[in-house]
C-alpha cells in the first residue's frame, strides 16, 4: 500500500513558486498496476520520484511498507562515461548483488537489451532506444514489490515493447507497476487503475480508461485552464 499524506510540492521559477501538488491525500490501491496520465509538466515524474524516495516533498510524506524501485527513466541512473556493463554492475552492487549472482544478472540484462557488443561501450554513445532497453532491462536485475516506470517503454520499437510487456506480465505475478506514459494502448494493456494528474492534485479512477478519457478531453483546448479555477477535489 502507498499512502500520500498532505503532500505538497512546488518548484521555484522566476515568476514565483509553481505548485505541483497542494496537500494531496491519496491511497493507491494495493496490488494493482497503476497508469499515471497528465499533461507535460503536471508533475508525473516528480510524483514518481517522491514515491521512489529520491526526491522530497516540501511537506507531507509518503507512507509505504513496500519495496519500491528507483524510477526507471531515460536520463537518470546511468553514468554516461561508464559502459553498460559497469553501470549494471554498479546498480547490482548497491542492491547487494555480487559475484556469481551479479554475472547472472548481467547476462540476462545484456540478453534482454539486445545491445550486443555495445554492452562494453560507454553509455553516452548509446541511442535513446538502446538506453531505454538497458534501463528497462536493468529492472529485471533487482526484485521489488513495486516498479516505477517513467516513459521508458515509449521510446522503443514494436519488438521492444512486446518484450517489455512480456517482462511486465511475468513480474506482475509477484509485483506491481506504476507506469507513466503518453502511449494510450500501452497503458490500457498494462494498467488496472488510472490516475489523472493536473494542476494541484490528482484523481484516482477505478479503470485506466476513465483517466484516458479525461486526458483526451483535455487535449484540443490547450488554453482552457486558468489558475483561478480550483481543480476538481482530490479524492482517495
Amino acid at each position: 500500500m502507498i499512502k500520500l499524506e498532505n503532500l505538497t510540492k512546488s518548484y521555484r521559477t522566476p515568476h514565483g513558486r509553481k505548485v505541483l501538488f497542494q496537500n494531496v491525500n491519496a491511497i493507491f490501491p494495493e496490488g494493482k498496476n497503476i497508469g499515471i496520465l497528465g499533461r507535460n509538466g503536471a508533475g508525473k515524474s516528480t510524483l514518481l520520484r517522491i514515491m521512489g524516495g529520491i526526491d522530497y516533498p516540501d511537506s507531507g510524506r509518503v507512507v509505504t511498507d513496500q519495496r519500491i524501485s528507483w524510477p526507471m527513466g531515460l536520463s537518470g541512473g546511468f553514468q554516461s562515461s561508464m559502459t553498460g556493463r559497469e553501470n549494471v554492475a554498479f546498480v547490482c552492487g548497491i542492491h547487494g548483488i555480487w559475484g556469481r549472482a551479479q554475472r547472472r544478472v548481467m547476462d540476462r540484462v545484456q540478453d534482454f537489451a539486445e545491445i550486443g557488443n555495445y554492452f562494453d561501450v560507454p553509455v553516452k554513445s548509446y541511442s535513446s532506444g538502446m538506453r531505454s532497453r538497458l534501463a528497462f532491462g536493468l529492472s529485471i536485475a533487482v526484485d521489488f514489490d513495486l516498479y516505477l516506470v517513467d516513459e521508458v517503454m515509449s521510446v522503443g520499437d514494436a519488438h521492444f515493447k512486446r518484450k517489455c510487456e512480456e517482462i511486465i506480465a511475468e513480474k506482475r505475478k509477484i509485483s506491481s507497476f506504476i507506469i507513466v506514459a503518453h502511449a494510450m494502448p500501452l497503458l490500457r494493456k498494462n494498467c488496472d487503475v488510472g490516475i489523472y494528474l493536473e494542476s494541484g492534485g490528482l484523481t484516482i479512477f477505478d479503470t485506466v480508461d476513465e483517466a484516458i478519457e479525461l486526458y483526451k478531453g483535455e487535449q484540443p483546448k490547450p488554453q482552457s485552464r486558468s489558475g483561478a479555477t480550483t481543480p476538481p477535489a482530490v479524492n482517495a
Binding site: 521512489g52 524516495g53 529520491i54 519500491i68 528507483w70 524510477p71 537518470g76 541512473g77 546511468f78 553514468q79 546498480v91 548497491i94 542492491h95
Partner: peptide
C-alpha cells in the same frame, strides 16, 4: 547527481 537516482545512495 546521477547517483542520487537510487534511494539508498
Amino acid at each position: 547527481r546521477g547517483l542520487f537516482n537510487y534511494r539508498q545512495l
